[in-house]
Design a protein around this nucleic acid. Sequence first.
DNA 1: TGCTACGATGTGACCGGTCACATGACCTTG
DNA 2: CAAGGTCATGTGACCGGTCACATCGTAGCA
Lengths: 340, 340
Amino acid sequence: MPRTRVTIRDVAAAAGVSRQTVSRVINDSDRVLAETRLRVEEAIEQLGYEPNAVARSMARGRTGILACISPNVTDYTFASIIEGAQAEARAQGYFLLSTSAPDRQTFDHLMDQLVRSGRTDGLMVIQPYIEDHSREVPAGCPTVFAGGGAHADQTVGDSVVLDDLTAAFQATGHLLELGHRRIAMITGPLGEVCVQNRILGFERALIADGVAFDPQLVVEGDWSAASGYALFNRLTGRAEASFTAVFAQNDLMAAGILRAAVEKGIGVPRQLSVIGIDDIPMAAYLNPPLTTMRQDFQAIGRQAARQLIHRVGQPEDTCRHERVRADLILRRSTAHPALL
Amino acid sequence: MPRTRVTIRDVAAAAGVSRQTVSRVINDSDRVLAETRLRVEEAIEQLGYEPNAVARSMARGRTGILACISPNVTDYTFASIIEGAQAEARAQGYFLLSTSAPDRQTFDHLMDQLVRSGRTDGLMVIQPYIEDHSREVPAGCPTVFAGGGAHADQTVGDSVVLDDLTAAFQATGHLLELGHRRIAMITGPLGEVCVQNRILGFERALIADGVAFDPQLVVEGDWSAASGYALFNRLTGRAEASFTAVFAQNDLMAAGILRAAVEKGIGVPRQLSVIGIDDIPMAAYLNPPLTTMRQDFQAIGRQAARQLIHRVGQPEDTCRHERVRADLILRRSTAHPALL
DNA sequence: TGCTACGATGTGACCGGTCACATGACCTTG
DNA sequence: CAAGGTCATGTGACCGGTCACATCGTAGCA
């Protein structure tokens, strides 16, 4: 067993050709005689040669690595996007280097470092915060914003995001159709783009149906089940805030609401309708099973990776912005409001 | 603005020193005159120089990248381990390249490719399947097995895994203490190491308390809430299989059980106790809140990364195998069995 | 004073590929 | 039959760092 790595020169020597010919063989160039190619392939097989990716990156000026940065990787929505992106990247011969940056400072720092160190061919940003978009996108590095909701007027980088406005519009429409008129909303952090869009979609649906938008019924959560639980309790504690339905901006918070409702003896959906967004795997197994807007995160990730890889090849193309629709999944947490 | 990248030679020229001196400065070598260092640092600042990671990898023979491979990244347990590992890697100047391999073939292929292409300094494997361990661990590449439960007799590579046996022993002990004697178990796929260990811990706890182990009460699930739901229904459908408690090998399946129990009108914990493993974020917001064994996945990930990085530096050290304890989290899904 | 030691810095080779261009054999064509 | 084209292959330079070693000046010491 050779102690040192087998290089292209070893193969060339063994096959009696030059390095360049070996290079041609491993890169599928057609300008090699069939007979020669065979000899080289035999040598490769025999020596167990595998091209060194690092050397290749250096020579080619491309690394075959896409970096993905997100606030964390445990959140189901982020993880799914990443998984989709990984699959697409893998299919196209790329690797995805994913990193999480818990705070804004780390986020900026890592982004900068990844790009400037030349380690990556492109950057996929899952960054929900409003002001950060287009702020520090490193010039000269292909960038795609995924999932988190980029601005529509984004001029740097492509984007593939959920059509939050429409999703919220549809979810609200569902509640309105059932006959609800007083609908509360528990939002994500107000500093995130998608949160604003969801509020907007909510408001528009209400207005379209001639229902007044009551800011008192909108409270800010942080996506966690704990916040859904706490905020629902706060809402129901307020005398002036009566409502027959709650629209949670994600399923986790909806789960918290369901829990709080049980504790208060409020029957869902008999006395209260609850709807979420995301359709996390457990949504169907909550009590009662949760009606929600399904997002195809994997598809978002795949599409984002596809766009990014395209841009690596075509840096000068105009930016593309894609919105992905969500689907209403009817389960048992929503119903006609109780007749009082 | 310079069109091409700024290289170490540009900096050297600007500072009036040699490349090597610049190299010494950026690598914190102390053998540089303070005055010279200052001049170089100014030049770096002014030109906006950043060392090229790829060139560095090539010259040094190390990439600063650790690869992590797991069946998927959406599963909360995997994602948490990865997040912990990422954080530790980042803190030590490494990046974590995570890839998911949905099937065994992809798994092997990717592992091989990652290692042989020289892209990575070390490999972190989250691989639950029994037979695959120590099978194809690429010789010469530092490897650590994380979370999934490596064999104790593992001779290649380090490992950091949950102490599944003890966790199951404790969980079962809790149910026994409450007075349960007929306890069902819904397992993960039998082909996974941790599943076997959990069954073993379950069995030992029963025997230690003089309770017979009844194989009829043990059924195989697939970790999903859906399987917990379906299997619980199957168990309760069998006349011969009466029991007062169910031990689900993870929280997701426990959630499925809770859902099924509600549908059947079985009160938890009044008529049935349910315990899980993992303590996923939603466990506290299920109805009722789930008693479970908490695993500190992040810590497992961090520790695995730490071990891996250590081994990158000390390839010849003897393998270390670490087991991490789980903690019993008491909530409201377990209680004394109903007095009939 | 002369020799050695050491600290600061520079030089050439090298990591393992790919690129651009050169070479030589053979074929086509006016 | 010479000029030009095409095909298969080889050569030197290069990507941007680091390594090992060389060099030079100055201080320490007998």
